[in-house]
Each structure stands twice: as C-alpha cells, then as structure tokens.
Design a protein around this nucleic acid. Sequence first.
RNA 1: GCCGGAGUGGCGGAACUGGCAGACGCACCAGACUCAAAAUCUGGCGGGGCUCAACACCCCGUGCGGGUUCGAAUCCCGCCUCCGGCACCA
Length: 828
Amino acid sequence: MSDSYDFSAIEPRWQQYWRERNLFHVDRREDREKFYYLDMYPYPSGELHMGHVRNYIIGDAFSRYRTMQGYNVLHPMGWDSLGLPTENAAIQFDIHPVEWTKQCVSNMKQQFDRLGISYDWEREVDTSDPDYYGWTQWIFLQLYSNGLAYRGPGLVNWCPDCQTVLANEQVVNGCCERCDATVERTTREQWFFKITDYSEKLLSDLDLLEDWPERVVKMQENWIGRSEGFSFRLKIREHDEDMEVFTTRIDTIYGVTFMVLAPENPLVERLTEGTDHEEAVRRYCQQAMAESVMERTSEDTEKTGIFTGAYAVHPLTGEDIPIWVANYVMMDYGTGAIMAVPAHDQRDFEFARKYEIPVVPVIQPEDEELDGETMTEAWEGDGRQINSGDFSGQPNRDALEQIADHLEVKGIGRRDVSYRLRDWCISRQRYWGAPIPIIYCDECGTVPVPEEDLPVELPRDAEFRTTGSSPLSQHEEFMNVKCPDCGGAARREPDTMDTFVYSAWYYLRYPSPREDEAPFNSRDVEYWLPVDQYVGGVEHATGHLMYSRFITKVLHDLGMVSFREPFASLFTQGMVYKDGAKMSKSRGNVVTPDGINEEYGADTGRLYSLFVGPPDQDTEWNDEGVVGAHRFLWRVWRLVNENLSIWNEDFSTTLPEDGSEAQRKMRRRTHRTIMKVTDDFEGMRFNTAIAAIMELSNELGSFVEQLNEDDAADRSVFSEGLRTLLMLLSPITPHICDELWERMGLEPSLFERDWPQADEKLAAAETITIVVQVNGRVRDSLDVPAGTEMDEVAEMALESEKVVKYVEGKEIAKIIKVPDRLVNVVVN
RNA sequence: GCCGGAGUGGCGGAACUGGCAGACGCACCAGACUCAAAAUCUGGCGGGGCUCAACACCCCGUGCGGGUUCGAAUCCCGCCUCCGGCACCA
C-alpha cells in the first residue's frame, strides 16, 4: 500500500466505487424522513469555474451530511439548456444548439463527477429535451385555458436592425448587444402570463418564507411594489372620452394644475387627432419613446413635455385642467396618466417651473407659509389643508380619508391598490426555445394546440442564425398546419418561450423525471416537495424565484399540488472574486476545477472552497490558501497512515471509564468537535466547521506524540478521535476519507455510515477559566472546577495579588458575577 | 433618492443571546532536520511603551464621532466608505 497521498489514483477509484454501488440513487420511501436538496441548475456554458462550483460543493457537503443523519435525500441536477444563452453561444461558435448543448452537458457532467458530487443522475432533467418542454407547453395550455395566458400589446425593446425584440439584459447602454443599433421602445403583440393576478398572493405569502434571506424577501416586496391610493376618472372637454388616474395623494387633489399622459398612451392620439397640435405632439412622442431606453441608463433625464390642446374637468371644482404629454410618466405603471400637483410633488414641480404652469399649494406645513409663486421645491410632507374647499383647515391625513369618502360617494372613483409588478412577457422571437403551442386560423381565430398533439417539436433544420424576427416563421413546414378545430389551413405561432418558463417548474420534474402521462407524478411530488433547501445566486431574487412561486401558486389553485410555496428554505451563496474582480473568462482570472483537480485533487478544491469564507458572503480566492488546504489533507493522511498500528477498530470496549487528564482532554475535544461541527453544518457554516476539524486533527497529533502504545485506553481514545475526524470530514472531502476509512479496515462508504453522536457529558469542561476584571479591565484569570459557586470564585478573585494591587485603598462598590464567565470588581 | 448588506492584523476570516478581540488557515520571521534546497516538524507573529535582553507589567486598538452599561466588534443616536437591488412608480 502506498504511503503517499496519491489523490489522482484515489479519487477516480472511489468515484467508481460509488457509481458501481449506485449510492446516490434514491427512491420514495415512507419509512424515512425525506430531504429535498436543490441547487439551481446551470445553463450548459461548457465549462465551470470555481465560482460556480463552490455552490455545488456546498450542496454536496450538505446532502452527504443529511444522508449520514438518516434522511432520504433527493439531490438532483439538470440543465437549463433551452434559451438565449445557449443560442447565443451556438451562434458565436457556429454550431447547432443541439450539438452545443450535447457537448457542454457531457463536459460539465464530467466536471461534476470528477468533483465527486453525489448527484442522482437517473433524475437528470434537460429542458431542451422535447419530453421536458412538451410538458412546459402543457403548462402553458393550462394557463391559457384558465385565462392566465393572453396575447396582447406589450412594450418591448426593439432592435430596428435585427428586427427583433430584445430582453432587458440584451440591451447594453441603450444599444443592441449584437449590432449596436439604438434600441427603441415599441409596442408589439406578445404572449404574457398574467402574474399580476397573483400580486397580492405573491406578496402576502412572503410571510410563509421564514427561512428565506431577509434581503430576498425585501427585494421581492420592492419588486411587487404595492402602494395604496385612489383611482378616479376625469371627463375631457369637447371629447367623448375620459381618463383615469391613480394617486397616493388624493389629499392634494385641489392642487392639481395639469394632467400628464405617457407618450405611449393611446389617448394622446385620440385627443390630438385633427387638431393644430397633432403634428407637434406626434413628433414629440416619437422622440420621447426612442429616448426612453437610453434614459434608463442615464442619471436624471431632463423632463420634457408638450401640451395636447385638450382639457380635463376637475371632478371637485369643475375647472379646466390642461392635459400634457411628458416623458416622466410611464405607460406601464398605474394607468399611464397622472394628476400633477406641482406644489406637492417634486417631479411635477420641476415640470411646472420649466413650462410655466401655475403652482398651487394646498397643504401648509407647520412652520412655513408656502407661496406658489416663490417656492423653490415641492412640499411633500404633511400639514394642514388650504385652498381645499370644505376640507380646508384639516390635517391632510384626515382630509385624505374624507376626500376619498366624498369621491366614492359621488361615484367618481374608489380606493385602489396599484402594483409595480407587470405581466410576464414570455414571447421570444428566437429559435432555441419551446414553441408556444398556439395556432392561428382565419376561421376559428386563436386555437390552442390540443394536448394530445404535444410536444410541438422544434424543427432541427430551421435557420437559427438569422438576425431577423422569429426564425421559425421562415420554416414553412413548421408554420403550415391544419386548424385543430375546423381542419382548414392555419399557421403556427412562430415565437418561442422565455427561458424562465422552463425553470419555473423544473423542481417539480425531478421527483418523477420520466413520467409520460403528466408533467409530474403527484404521489412523488407530494412526497418530495416542497424543496427543503434551495441554493443559488441572489441574482435570481426577482426573476426565477418569483416566476417559480407564481407557477406553483397557479398549479395549487388548479388543484394539482397541495402546497403554495415551492421552496421552504432558500440559501443564497456569495460570489467568488479573484484579484479583486468577479471570476470571468473575459477577465482571464478564472480558476477551473480541472486545474485544481490536476494539481491538488478534487478534495483539496472542495475543502478550500468551503474553508475560504462564509458561503453566503462574497469572498476572495487565494491560490496560496489552496496549498494550505492541501497541506491539511496531507496531515490527515499521515495521521492515519503513520498510526495504523495504534488504531484499534474495537476501541469502544476499551475506552477508559475516567481516564488520565490527557485522555479526558482528548475525548473532550473529540465530542466538542462533533457538537460544533454538527451545529455549524446546520447553519451551513462550513468554514468554521473546518476550522474545528483542523483543531481536532491538531490535537490528535499532539496526543499521539505522548501516547503509550501499550496502553489500551490511550489507543482507544486516539481511535475514537481518529474515527470521528474522518466521519466529520467525509461530507467535505469524501474521497480521501473513504480511502483512509478502508485502510483502517472499516467498511466503506462513509456515505452509508451514521453521523456521529456527541456525548455531552464528555464534552463538558472540567475546569473553567474565569476572567477577573477590575472596573471592566482584565487583571487576572482563575481556573476553577466547573460548577464552582460564583460567590466562592469572587472571594478567590479578591485574594488574587493582581486584583489586590488595583483594589487596595479603594471602596468596593459592587461585584458583578457571570456564572462560568467572569468576575468584575467595581471600585470607586 | 428608496430598500438591503458589509467595514476587525500583511491577507481570507473567527468571536453562540454584550463578558479574555484576532479561533482556523495563508503569508512572514526564527529554530530543528539537510552538504544545500524543497518538503516536513517546533516556536513566534495587531500597534506602542518600559527593559541590555527575556519574563513580567502598562497603554492603545474592531471605519469615524457621541451615548447606554460594571463591561460594547456586538446595543442606541449621528456620520463616512464600499457592494448589491430598485429607480421619474404617480
């Protein structure tokens, strides 16, 4: 047997052992408590770097730990292969996405396996597999038939050169990432999921997510953006039209001096049609709409606008209010129109000053008299109503309620809630996605593809490289179809679905990945779900995680699942930096698992990834730190191999009853380490768990130095520590642990052994160091037997020379005693 | 602007509900082994003062300024810096 830690031989050997025994495969079994551990699946980019990998190692260490604790652990992995990132890569490397995906998946799978990650590959899910995306289309049809999927005009980023819609992340500084053309905001027919129907549920059920990071919950709260206010309609003079606005400050309604419409608001055209203003307003709107993409990235865009020539009627005073169009009102929030109160809204104020519109204060702050002519900024705080008809004189918060009541009684408006959340646009004018299962028939209109015709397969021979719109629209064979209703000639929807649609339900597929009668088998899903621990990057806080919650809620309301939230606990891992910057290929600062594997082995990479810092925080990768991790494994290696003659497999029968001081100290360390590591694993604090394991290892090293080989008790104490060390370390570095375990004559794999139990009595300290302070300053310390009365300790403290020095000649005011901790003598 | 998070040695980072700041590791320094080096092992390692030197002892020190407390990295108030999210949201 080699004495050298030859990781390059050891690691493949154990990986094969695990594979042959099919160790990582799990089935539903009612006799064990289940645990569903899920990592966010990656898109097949081809190569992983340590930044990504840390995430998966966290998951592996935790899954192995839970398995050793006796849970039935589901730990699956799959591929988010269908969608833009893959298509872009395929175009870049001029290879078909199917091929590209195949290559990347095979490469990444190998990388995972070389890291020794315990995935149950029998449950692998690949979203680009028609079996998978067919069920995604099926889910689309469920939403469609329940009124939750609709086609309608949507504001989109439009690249005039590429003739396609772009996702937000494809717009860089207001330009198309592919061709650099200036991106326009325009309106196009798109498919949407009506996530806004679930705004309230998505918001209020955040309360159920106790084990989610507070910041993710906050981000979702902000994203949903609930605000309470008042909606009302205003008549428009000389038009058979009215307009609706939403405001959170109905108390300021007497201060309205103009109305503003968003440039995209269709009302603009109707109000100006055939008037002197038509031409100028149209020109303005076009310009404003083109700007609006650029504007997003610039600091504070200058507010601009133009008068439409039309007037609204103030619902309380009957006065004429000019209607303007301005760039600072957004079409996709509220009603795309506002009542402007320049005296009490800073944006309206700036606009009014610029275009010389009157400013009328209606709320007077306590210590200041506002004058519309001279004020230099809006007063957005509270105060007393003025110029407000019958409501004048009241505190504005009271007036707000009264005015709302009054308008509701008069039938002019109602209390209302507005959300920032917008419907989810799922259309993509791209090739590499699941076709939206819809057919357009001249006779029957929009017809959903019948369920039995699913999946609508993506034709492999479509030209995906074109930059034009919807590559599938050019594929006649795909496009031409018989109408499922009337049998007449019809055309398919050429758009495909957004990547986030597939990932919104993949966690439901793992429990029954080959189910072909339904998207998932209910018994399996009800057994495994919800996910007990979900882990991924915080960048998915408002995208993927929101969409997944939405889809789960829809399925819940359709009676398909019993739970309302898919992920019981969420953990967001930090990013790994190198040389002060995020690891990325373009920066050339990536550290790959392959490189680490070759030089130090997978176990070293795993150990260092977890040791480098708290997993939920960003951290800096340090190549020299890797060496330290490797050195530690070497120390463990030698500790076992050099002491095999001392190791006693049946140590439990010869453990000392009481033992020498050194033996008691060693056992205390062993059992304390079990407690500490178990506690740290529960909180995913792997860095401190590893530190504790290192301390155990160091102490075993010292203990064995002075050990008497003829003393059975000594050998047992050492053996107990050694065995514990390997068990605690095995979820982190499973290869070396299984190897050493076997060399110790024990039966592998540690994956199948039980997590060690601490004996709290052995872990308890015998002597405790009590800190002695005088006036809060440390002056001495006392070692006393555990459980010594603090009064007694205090007396000892007062006798201490060092304390006497500081107390002498002074009056003792009081003595603070903290059990097992300290004594603080307070003197005047 | 609003909402989060974070500031601790040369570095990554420890410190459970306030109780010996700097665990563990890296780097560095010294010593052992060696012809020598590497590897390994042992010891040291926040700053300053006192001291020939060591031991001992004293003072300062967790972004800054206040406060609460016998006692603050930790709690409170007011700032600064960095990171992330949202952002003309009516």
